[in-house]
């Protein structure tokens, strides 16, 4: 219930935060919303010597449109993403995903950046971030770099973030006409995390699936793009049968996790079911037949 002692820093600027991170290296942990870090510290699964609270930074909490993309500050909370009128209009997939996280209280505190940097294999965002082909901006005292979402997640609880780097911004595309997306999730009944979470984004052109991206979370040690599903669909005319057949590839080649709540086999099966459901919903939305 009680974290081990630590030294607390609340930098006012990104520069200051980066300096602190450089100084304290491995012994420091960044505190964003605190909904991944604090529970681990309370159970003493984490005991950093230094905690750098990003909550006092100005300017990492925004959702704005820039050149056809929507830029989201890493400190934006799940609730802000869930309720953003800009996201709901231009990239509703992210709002839909945020709404599926935990509960109201968690969404009021937890942040997009915090969740992504923590890279829990059962977190919800990674599926959508992958399906949206988001860009992740990371700052360090050396400068700024951006990577594609597909490169960001390396392994369980491991990302591209190097020592001294802070995830500062996530850019997602504004979804145009003819594009539809959906996030469908099977929740772990106790924790609310995703046993399986699938985000699908499709663009219809002349009745065919012109573009398609499917992100899957919860199934393997890290979230992934279901490329086999995408390949089976690309350029084809969407039909119920085709979507169902393609969805069967959702966990192909992935070593599925097994735990108390789902065996590897069941997880893989559910990956197929929820991929089909997400695809059906995304296609319907793209076609404008359903909300």
């Amino acid at each position: 219930m009680i974290p081990a002692p630590f030294e607390y820093h609340a930098p006012k600027s990104l520069e200051e935060a980066l300096r602190l991170l450089d100084r304290h290296g491995d012994e420091a942990k960044l505190l964003a919303g605190g909904h991944s870090l604090l529970p681990m510290m309370k159970l003493r699964l984490a005991a950093p010597r230094f905690v750098i609270d990003l909550g006092r930074l100005k300017g990492l909490d925004y959702i704005r449109e820039e050149q056809g993309m929507i830029a989201i500050g890493a400190m934006t909370t799940h609730a802000e993403i869930e309720n953003s009128s800009l996201l709901r209009a231009k990239c509703p997939l992210l709002s839909e995903t945020a709404a599926a996280i935990g509960d109201v209280q968690v969404r009021n505190r937890g942040t997009l950046g915090g969740s992504l940097a923590h890279a829990d294999p059962a977190a919800d965002y990674p599926a959508s971030i992958l399906a949206l082909e988001a860009q992740m901006t990371m700052n360090s005292s050396m400068g700024v770099r951006a990577v594609d979402a597909a490169e960001f997640f390396l392994d369980m609880l491991t990302t591209q973030l190097r020592p001294g780097e802070i995830l500062t911004e996530i850019r997602v595309p504004a979804l145009g006409k003819g594009t539809g997306a959906a996030y469908c999730k099977l929740s772990q009944p106790a924790s609310g995390y995703a046993v399986v979470g699938v985000a699908a984004r499709v663009t219809l052109a002349a009745g065919k699936l012109a573009q398609i991206a499917v992100g899957v979370t919860g199934v393997g040690p890290k979230a992934y793009r279901a490329v086999n599903v995408e390949d089976a669909l690309r350029g084809k005319k969407a039909s119920e049968k085709l979507l169902a057949e393609a969805a069967r590839h959702a966990a192909r080649g992935v070593e599925a996790l097994a735990d108390l709540h789902a065996s590897a086999g069941y997880r893989s099966e559910m990956a197929a079911v929820f991929t089909r459901r997400a695809l059906e919903r995304a296609v319907a939305r793209a076609a404008g037949t359903k909300a």
Partner: peptide, 25 residues
């Protein structure tokens, strides 16, 4: 101690939060 029961819910600047998963600072 895992932010799952909600008994510690308070309003922080008007928003419901679990006060066991917020540092006083």
């Amino acid at each position: 101690e895992t932010s799952l029961c909600g008994a510690c819910t308070v309003l922080l600047d008007g928003r419901a939060v679990k006060s066991c998963t917020v540092l006083a600072v």
